[in-house]
Design a protein around this nucleic acid. Structure first.
Lengths: 208, 208
DNA sequence: TACTGATGTGTACAAGTGTTCACTAATGTG
DNA sequence: CACATTAGTGAACACTTGTACACATCAGTA
């Protein structure tokens, strides 16, 4: 009689992960979250936590995996919406910022994790960024937009692009989601960062 | 008789700040530190904390101020050691990485704070970065290395440079201080990032 | 149908938390 | 010298924390 309903398998697991994300979205840092706090937010008894995660680090790792899915979805959308090469940067940045606003908590978690206290989470996020950069390099190759660059230099360029965009995260997440003016500023500035990088890449000599 | 010695004024304050830094240097995240934990590490009774700080956020803010001093000292050294323009990037990156290694805890705190939970700390670090970027812009102007760029575009470039270097922080701090090979890799890669940016700036048209 | 494993719940406990209070010794100022 | 201020102490408070244990309920399988 203590059992209210019979939840679908994995439901509580999701509830817990969402609870952690919610707290992060409210401004809390993931490293400062406790098991009890998360279970409370999830509306679940503390003991349930251990049915799904060994500790908070474990939960963090599983969040990184989900973050990967979000990023891939975003990348797919970006690829589908690429119209012409000259609008490529602006549109991609736009898609990124939109996703960042729509998945605020996820991206906050990502920004936090880069300097977080779990080495594993750190490495996971880093790995997602590498994957992102390599996909970007593939796209640029396919679109024949970087034919004069060696593989290593193209890789370098894409890495820098991804880092710059990632850093813009801290700009976006720092402003309120309703402040469309500031959002526009960040959007423009990020786009100009990328233009600057691409001008650099275009004039780069891979065999000096 | 309970008073062991009569400590110099501000001594305990320093002990507390160093204790927090020490814990951060050991891999802990600042947001997860507690007052008792810090005072314990400092070898001080918990109540003493309140003589100097209102809460942990307050301590964080004061750490940001000290961080500013570290950064300024670093900048001064960089300016003194600038030999020729063509070695400028490599030498500056070298100085930065050396400082990052020598003040590991400080820079970890900085990396954490960028996505930390205290808005004030976040803004403080951001402000330090802006200052850094503007000083860099001044230097480049003075050395007549960016005469074709508008003020706004030079500002953009320097901002991107500072962001890229700051991001490299997470690379450096992620590797062990003894791993000179990996450190050399980060050093080289960071330098190439900056070269790429400067090539972009050199070919940038401020009045298109 | 009976058994088994996964997932949920409630209770309990020792340890750790932030903060308050009253007290004391040293320091600097009139 | 007397006195207010500052910076330290220890004891106590009401909570919160992570984790362990025993138990209940479901789903699937033999």
């Amino acid at each position: 009689m203590a059992d209210r309903k019979r939840p679908k398998p994995g439901e509580t697991r999701e509830k817990l992960m969402n609870a952690a994300l919610t707290l992060v979205g409210k401004g809390r840092h993931f490293a400062s979250l406790g098991i009890r706090e998360v279970t409370r937010q999830a509306g679940v008894v503390p003991t349930s936590f251990y049915r799904h995660f060994r500790n908070m680090d474990d939960l963090g790792l599983q969040l990184v995996d989900e973050l990967g899915l979000v990023l891939r979805r975003m990348m797919r959308e970006a690829r589908a919406n690429v119209s012409q090469a000259d609008k490529l940067i602006d549109e991609s940045v736009g898609i990124f910022i939109t996703h960042a606003q729509n998945n605020r908590a996820f991206f906050m978690f990502m920004a936090q994790g880069l300097a977080g206290e779990s080495r594993a989470v750190q490495e996971g996020i880093r790995s997602e960024m590498r994957y992102f950069a390599s996909e970007l390099a593939n796209d640029l190759r396919r679109m024949k937009l970087a034919e004069h660059l060696s593989d290593a230099d193209l890789d370098l360029t894409c890495d820098l692009v991804v880092r710059s965009v990632a850093f813009s995260l801290t700009d976006i997440l720092g402003i309120s989601p309703e402040d469309t003016y500031q959002e526009e500023q960040v959007r423009k500035r990020t786009a100009r960062f990328l233009q600057l990088i691409f001008v650099g890449a275009a004039n780069w000599n891979s065999h000096p």
